[in-house]
Design a protein around this nucleic acid. Structure first.
Length: 722
DNA sequence: GAGCACTGC
């Protein structure tokens, strides 16, 4: 049995109707129905359920998707316009169907490919409560959203994954350059492809899925596509977006200079989905403490509402743990009526604990998942009927005074609030309890500030340069970042040797740095590591520092580069990556360590490509420290007599993070650091002891002279202070 | 002596 009833069609053929074979069982019949998996949240959401229409063929299933009735319209608009912005509600099936419609309409003729980008590699995992308990485990191990959606589409086409339908993500690519016609890939992967093929000449149509999430990579792609489409008038673009951003995308790609709308080149189409309504409830007056208020709200709705699981949003791990603990106390105290089961969910949670949120609550028990923003896009929970939204989120911000990134708790945007509420409307009509007034909801920002406007731009600028954008200051950004932020990034890249006096990418250093999937300072450190005779150590430390959750228990967070190095060593040498128990015993995150090992292997391959030999300094710390300085000299700080630190450039006050092993020791006079996190104070993380002489030796251009702007700024600060 | 939202190459 194949799905050969869906033959590719030429442009002249009838595209409105399908024929299908009745009778016999299709491939999917009688097994778990993966259809909703593909349609739920456009592939980002996975809802597994038993096939209710056991005798439906795959074609019939496809035709039942909400998107199906827009098929001819989408095909018409794609031919008439160059850009189609599709406002697609959750559950419309657009991720899996639109590429197939295009394929069937022969957009993949002459060897062309239809590409579909996703902002995430990991599928949003969710399971139907009706599944047996062992199934969630299987589902949660599913590899990635691209693979998942691609294999669904391959199934629907009766094709083998990796032939006609393929996918490409970091560490895992499954496509055939000659045969693949529909290709799912992460947005970051497409940026990499653009470095090799700046005009994307293999593609006839590019679909940007979930573009409203406005990741750095999506925004880079969007700006570049605008350039590409000037040179390639045959290329079509389909942007899948939320309602609020649709106009922004349309106007960005519109090339019609006249007011005559019949000459428009971009258009918006709204596609309805399958969602239930969610009624909002607001508080009468602002709450004093949203954590305790969350607990109270959950308890109140537990008393008053009929059954249905609850999802509560808080901003961070600590808040989540506090709320779960409080809910647990109440649950154990009240024994009459329905029981309460509170489970935490955040990114740093060990894998086994993360799976608990998918377990069904025992009979007569209500499940309450207290989660960070991970539940807003990355993890979709089944059976949620009530949402409690604290109204805040922890967001990355980039300071224009210190030029440091930090995490800050800020009010959510309306689109974020709507997204959170939507989590209650997947099974039946739901309710959202917003811990802010209706008035303050109206005053929230409509959309979240895109990452491009709140990030350190050095990695972005480096990539744009490598992608052939000569004048980044004049690059057409969908949302232009602050000019100051761009200038800072240019200066930093210049200091790292990636750019020359004419602001061009240096050869080979700048070009090679851009090839590394790393922040520029790490890339520079690796590319010079051989001269210190410690590229082996440098590559391991770099890989370990890319992984966020190496340690499971916060109390065990005593770590330095050196101990990270030995953990990595033991993990690899002793083949412990086959044994998660070793990690558990040592409070280490198994998944995180496996990831670090993959990154390490990838980096070693790149070093090989640039003919940098793997050398080791055999335990001598100084070469490693000097090597770190060669990349991280811009992040140098010296001990101030007050006991805190001051950055060498900018004179900003910083402290060593209490989790660092250096914190308990006598404060070293000079250090460099990887990053800063701001909580009650600004803390340096991943700190290395250095000698000041190394700064002048390894980065004389940076420390002998400041830029005029910086000198003026420092002078201004001194005068302000006095 | 405090405690890092989430992705991605």
């Amino acid at each position: 049995m194949t799905s050969s009833f869906l033959q590719p069609r030429g442009p002249g053929e009838d595209r409105e109707t399908h024929t299908f074979r009745g009778g016999g069982r299709s491939r999917a019949a009688g097994s778990v129905n993966l259809e909703r998996q593909a349609e739920g949240s456009e592939g980002a959401g996975t809802v597994l359920s038993y096939n209710p229409h056991i005798n439906l063929t795959l074609t019939q299933q496809r035709q039942r998707l909400p998107i199906f009735k827009y098929r001819s319209q989408i095909m018409y608009l794609t031919e008439k316009y160059r850009t189609v912005v599709i406002i697609g509600e959750t559950g419309s099936g657009k991720t899996t169907q639109i590429p197939q419609y295009l394929h069937e309409a022969n957009w993949t003729g002459n060897g062309y490919v239809v590409g579909i980008t996703q902002p995430r590699r990991v599928a949003a995992t969710t399971v139907s409560p009706s599944l047996p308990t062992y199934l969630p485990l299987l589902v949660c191990l599913s590899v990635c959203v691209c693979r998942q959606v691609a294999s669904r589409v391959a199934d629907e086409r009766g094709a083998m994954l990796g032939r006609e339908v393929g996918y490409s993500i970091r560490f895992d690519s499954c496509c055939d350059p000659k045969q693949t016609r529909i290709k799912f890939l992460t947005d970051g992967m497409l940026v990499r492809e653009m470095m090799k093929d700046p005009l994307l000449k293999d593609y006839s149509v590019m679909i940007l899925d979930e573009a409203h999430e406005r990741t750095l990579h999506t925004d880079i792609i969007v700006g570049l596509l605008r350039k590409i489409m000037k040179k390639r008038d045959d290329l079509r673009l389909i942007v899948s977006s939320a309602t609020l951003d649709a106009e922004l995308f349309k106007n960005f790609f519109e090339t019609n200079p006249t007011r005559d709308s019949s000459r428009d080149t971009a258009v918006i189409l709204t596609v309805e989905g399958r969602v239930f309504s969610v009624q909002p409830r607001y508080v009468k007056r602002p709450v004093a403490n949203y954590v305790t208020s969350t607990v109270e709200t959950v308890l109140a709705l537990h008393r008053e509402e009929r059954n249905g699981d609850v999802l509560a949003f808080l901003t961070g791990q600590e808040e989540v743990d506090t709320a779960v603990a409080h809910l647990g106390e109440h649950a154990s105290r009240s024994n009459k009526g329905m029981q309460l089961m509170a489970v935490p969910l955040y990114g740093g949670l060990p894998y086994g604990d993360q799976l608990k949120v998918f377990q069904r609550a025992p009979p007569n028990t209500r499940k309450v998942v207290v989660a960070t923003n991970i539940a807003e896009t990355s993890v979709t929970l089944p059976g949620i009927v009530f949402v409690v939204d604290c109204g805040f989120v922890k967001l990355r911000t980039f300071s224009l005074t210190t030029y440091l990134e930090s995490l800050m708790v800020v009010p959510v945007s309306q689109s974020s609030a709507v997204q959170r509420a939507g989590r209650a409307g997947r099974v039946r009509t739901g309710k959202v309890f917003r811990l802010y007034t209706e008035d303050s909801y109206e005053k929230l920002e409509q959309t979240t500030v895109p990452e491009m406007q709140r990030s350190n731009l050095a990695p972005v600028i480096l990539q744009l340069k490598a992608l052939g954008v000569d004048n980044v200051l004049r690059f057409h950004f969908l949302s232009p970042p602050p000019a100051d932020s761009m200038l800072h990034a240019l200066e930093l890249l210049y200091a790292l040797g990636a750019l020359d006096d004419d602001c061009q990418l240096t050869q080979p250093l700048g070009h090679n740095m851009a090839e590394f999937p790393l922040p520029p300072m790490f890339a520079r450190m690796l590319l010079t590591s051989d001269t210190f005779g410690c590229s082996d150590e440098a590559v391991t430390i770099t890989a370990m520092l890319q992984v966020h959750h190496v340690f499971n228990q916060t109390s065990r967070q005593k770590a330095s580069a050196v101990s990270l190095f030995s953990i990595s060593h033991y993990f690899r040498v002793n083949q412990f990556n086959k044994d998660p128990r070793w990690c558990q015993q040592h409070f280490l995150n198994y998944k995180g360590l496996c990831h670090a090992v993959s990154i390490r292997e990838q980096l070693i391959k790149l070093l090989k490509r640039f003919k940098i030999p793997l050398t080791s300094c055999e335990g001598d710390p100084e070469p490693v420290q000097r090597c770190i300085v060669s990349g991280f000299f811009p992040n140098a700080a010296r001990l101030h007599y007050t006991g805190s630190y001051r950055t060498v450039r900018g004179d900003h006050t910083l402290l060593i993070h209490p989790s660092s092993i250096l914190h308990s020791e006598r404060s070293p006079p000079w250090v460099v650091f990887n990053e800063v996190i701001q909580t009650s104070k600004q803390y340096m993380r991943d700190v290395t002891v250095i000698k000041p002489g190394w700064l002048y030796e390894l980065a004389p251009h940076f420390y002998e002279y400041g830029t005029e702007r910086e000198l003026a700024e420092a002078k201004r600060r001194r005068t302000d202070a006095s």
